[in-house]
Each structure stands twice: as C-alpha cells, then as structure tokens.
C-alpha cells in the first residue's frame, strides 16, 4: 500500500486526465457518435428491410389469394350467366312456339271463315245460276210445249188438277 502511494504521481495523473478528456470529447464527437449512430441506423435499416420483405411476402400471398378468389368468382359468374342465358333461350323458344301456335290457330280460323264465306257465296251463285238455268229451260220447254194449243190446254188441266190436289 505504501509502495502504491509512493508510486502515485500527480504529473501522470494530470496527463491521464487531460488525455482521457480529449479522447472522450474529441473521439466522442468525431468517432463514437457517428459510429454508434451508423451502427444503429444500419440495424434499423436491416430490421425495416426484413419487415418490409415480410410485408411484401404477406401482400404477395394476399394477392395470390385474391386472384384465386377472383378466378373462382369469375367462374361462378360465368356459370350463372350461362345458366341464365340458357333459361332465357328456352323461355324465348317456348314463347315463340306458343306465339306461333296462337298465330297459326288464328290464321286457320280466318282461313276457315274465308273458305266458308267463299263456299256460301259460291253456293249462292250456283243457286242463282241453277234457278236462272231452270227458268230458261222451263221457258224453253214451255215455249216448245205451247206451240200447239191442245197441249196448253192439257197442261192447264194438269196444273189445275194438281192445284185441286194441293
């Protein structure tokens, strides 16, 4: 202990103090602070880069999921649209058929009516013609018959007979 105290020197203590102060202050300003800050900055950079990579990975998987979902949705929608189109087509076809049937029936009805009309018309004409013809024939016959007087009397007698019978 005595030796220790004897070894102690103010001069060396003083220089040590000065040099330590210089080292702490100057190195602190020009070396330690920049170094410590740079190390921290680098570590932050690394951890933020890692976090970003992780985020990107999550985003990627989310996008993939989303794509899958979109694809699935699109498929389902396509199916629905196809189904609807098919239904619509069937409906249109059925409707068209019905319409056609109704229209056809109507036409047939009209045609029938027309035919009937025409038939009646034709019949009436035929009747007219027949009656004209008959009259003419009758006149011709009568004209022929009544060329002699005897015959006329005979006929009148016949006719009168008939009238009596009626």
């Amino acid at each position: 202990m005595e030796k220790l105290i004897e070894q102690f020197s103010y001069g060396l203590f003083f220089w040590q103090l000065i040099i330590l102060l210089i080292v702490v202050v100057l190195l602190g300003k020009f070396a330690w602070k920049p170094i410590v800050n740079a190390l921290e900055e680098r570590e932050e950079g690394i951890s933020s880069a890692l976090a970003q990579a992780e985020k990107a990975r999550l985003e990627m998987s989310r996008l993939v999921n989303e794509n899958d979902q979109l694809l699935k949705d699109a498929r389902a929608e396509r199916d629905i649209i196809l189904k609807e189109a098919k239904e619509l087509k069937d409906k249109i076809v059925v409707e068209a058929k019905n319409q056609a049937q109704i229209e056809g029936a109507k036409l047939i009805e009209l045609a029938k009516k027309e035919i009937n009309d025409q038939k009646l018309k034709a019949l009436a004409e035929v009747k007219g013609q027949v009656s004209t013809l008959s009259l003419e024939i009758a006149r011709a016959v009568l004209t022929k018959e009544f060329e002699n007087q005897g015959k006329q009397d005979e006929l009148v007698a016949d006719l009168l007979k008939d009238v009596k019978l009626n």
Binding site: L20, V23, V24, L27, G28, W32, K33, I35, V36
Partner: peptide
C-alpha cells in the same frame, strides 16, 4: 457510450 467506448479501447 462515448465514455464506455473510450475507456474500453484506451
């Protein structure tokens, strides 16, 4: 840190 680094390396 400046002090600790200084004494360590000194």
């Amino acid at each position: 840190m400046p002090y600790l680094l200084s004494i360590f390396f000194l």
